[in-house]
Every structure is written in C-alpha cells, then in structure tokens.
Amino acid sequence: MTHDIAIVGAGMAGASLAAEIGTRARVLLIEAEEIAGYHATGRSAAFWSETYGGPGIQPLTTASGEYLRAGGFLDPLGSLHIGRAAEREEADAFLAAFAGSGVPLIPVDPRDHVHGLRAGWTIGIMEPTCAYIDVAALHADALARARRAGADVLLQAALTSAVRLDGRWRLETTAGTYEASVLVDAAGAWADEIARRAGATPLNIQPYRRTMVQLKTDPAPAPGVPHVVHVGGDFYFKPEAGGRLWLSPHDETPTDPADVQPEELDVAIAIDRFEQAVDWRITQLERKWAGLRSFAPDRLPVYGFAADTPGFFWFAGQGGFGIQTAPAAAMIGAALLLGEIPALASEIDIARYAPTRFG
C-alpha cells in the first residue's frame, strides 16, 4: 500500500498531525501498541498551563489555547505557584521569564487560595488562565478527524525497518509492508530508535520517567482550589472529581523507552513533599502510575526535515508539553511537511524548533 506521508506514533503528536494534514495528503498512521495513545498521551497530568515548560514552550501553548477553548477541551482551574520566603529569588526569576509574554501572573497571598498551607509558605503567584484539559476527548477527536480525512490507522504495527529507494520509503511493520514518500517520526520516547531504523542520525532525545499518584485527603480539596506547583519544581498537585487529588514529585529519572511503572521511592518522595507543604491528612492512596516525557538536549521540541536523511521528518521531543501544545504543533508540522508557510510564523519563531539547530 502506498501513501504520501507515513507517521510513526498515533499518540497526541501523530494523531493531531494527521488530522491537521487532512485531505491534503494520503496519510498512514502507524502505531506499535494495540491502543493509540497508550504511553505518554494516556498518562498525562491533564492540565493546560501557559508557563509549564518555560518561555520556549509558552508561545506554542498560548497559540493552542484558542482551538482548545473553542473545542470545549478546557475547563477553568487556575494555577498557584507557591514558595517559601527563602525562595523569593526563584519566584522573581519565574516572573521575569514571562515578562512581556502576555501571560497573566498575579502576586497573591497563597493562604487566601489554599487553606492548610504550613508556616513559611508565603510566596504566591496566581496564573488564572491554567485549565483542566480533556486529554482523552482531544486525542479521540484528532483520530476521528484523521480517519474522516481518509487516513489509514494501523494498530499493533511496530516499525521494524525503513529503507529509502528511488525517493520513497519502504516500511516493514509487524502488520505488513507499506510505502510512503515521507516518513514522520512522532514516536515520543522511541524517536531516536525510529531514526536509527531509518538510517537518520539520532538527536539524543532522552525519555524521563514522571510519577503520579491519586490520593484522598482530609480535608478534601475545597471548591475552587487551583492547581498548585512549587516554584522550585519539587512537586505539583491538582484537585480531581470526587474530592480526589493528583500529586507528582515532579521527578525526571532518565530511562530507556519502555512501559514504565512507578517506583515506591518516588511515591514516598511525592507524599513527603506534599505533607511538608500542607497539613492535610492523606486517608488513602488510590492509584499510582508513571509516564515518559522525552526531551531533546535543549528541552525544546523538534519539528522539521532531517538534514542528513531525505524524506525523514522529525516531530518529537515534546517533553511533557505535547498535549497542551498539540494544536499549534500540528499546524506548524503540517505546513512544513506540505511545503507551506506556517500560519503561526508571524507569532512564533519556528526556526528555534528546527532539527538543523543541532548541526
């Protein structure tokens, strides 16, 4: 079977890119798992924050906001960045990093927003635009739009080899052999491995394990409690339905790409850091899981054609921010693939995400 574009990876990155390409090219979406979005997409912390990921990610997140709000994928949440008095320098650096970005950041007394903060937690910065994001609905919508546009979606089809002959890729998968003019690497934690199979130079995209636990507490999170994140990066937590709480120690443990599981030490660290911040009593640890966040060396995503391998396109290195930046990333990726000028080129310095920045 022949296609114009074959995309490896049917998580949020690959699915949203296929949907954005639409009918302008014949697309093949290749997924190794039996469920699309099984790894990073299915284990997202599910919030949209314009500051999450830093100034290099913020333009992509902000540009995605209009689409996400219009589609009903966001619900109000708010984010409160907290710190101890001794962390004033970190808080000031955080504010300075987003000065002039248009992201509203308001100094507040954190005790007015989160009851039960322990003594010493006196620094508060409110980010009112932060929102819940319905990851499952957004991913399902992207897959549905891709299929309606004629994309072929293959599940349980791991790519085993990719050879370029006469300007086309011959793709061997566990579900059969396919051909395409362009091969897109949207494989997340497996991005470098897919590059090796295609003969492209890896970019040292490193997967990191991130831990999440679901708790019940006494008291339960009060109505209106926002997402709470430490300005020093030691933890974040957010309220969920049913009086539950999602908590992460904000860990980043380098690992090989795999179906990762949480480590008991990381769970214990998360709980310890939470208990140092608030006096809420944990009544039940209901669930724990881990996911992978994959970064290029400069921690920015990579969108564009490889310099050393004709017809090989990078769409990877999206860290933990691939969900919240998906609409903008897809617009940029689709335009570059199709030889168009991205509509966001006037708002975003797209060259900073090009794979050629690595030489």
Rank of each mutant, 00 (worst) to 15 (best):
A63L: 10
P249S: 06
A316F: 03
I205C: 12
A189R: 11
H227A: 07
A351P: 00
G339A: 04
A268V: 00
Q284V: 00
F295L: 08
G311V: 13
A85P: 00
T177D: 14
G232F: 02
Q206S: 08
E263P: 02
E66R: 14
G72I: 03
A189K: 12
P297H: 10
P262F: 02
A32P: 00
M1A: 14
R168G: 10
W169D: 02
F94A: 01
A180E: 08
T122S: 13
E31N: 10
M1L: 08
A85F: 01
R147H: 06
A13W: 07
A175S: 15
I125H: 05
A345E: 14
R293Q: 03
H81D: 00
S181E: 15
F305S: 02
A158D: 12
G359I: 09
K238D: 04
L344C: 10
T255M: 12
I30E: 12
F73W: 15
V213Q: 02
W246Y: 03
T177S: 14
V228L: 01
F47E: 01
E193L: 09
S294D: 10
E89V: 14
G224W: 05
L28G: 09
M12V: 12
E264R: 08
V103R: 01
P59Q: 09
F312V: 12
T309P: 05
A86I: 04
G100Y: 05
Q324R: 09
G72F: 07
I350E: 04
A146G: 15
P107V: 06
G42M: 05
V108F: 01
G83C: 06
A70Q: 15
A144Q: 12
F94N: 06
A335N: 07
E179V: 03
G83M: 01
P301L: 03
E286A: 00
V108P: 03
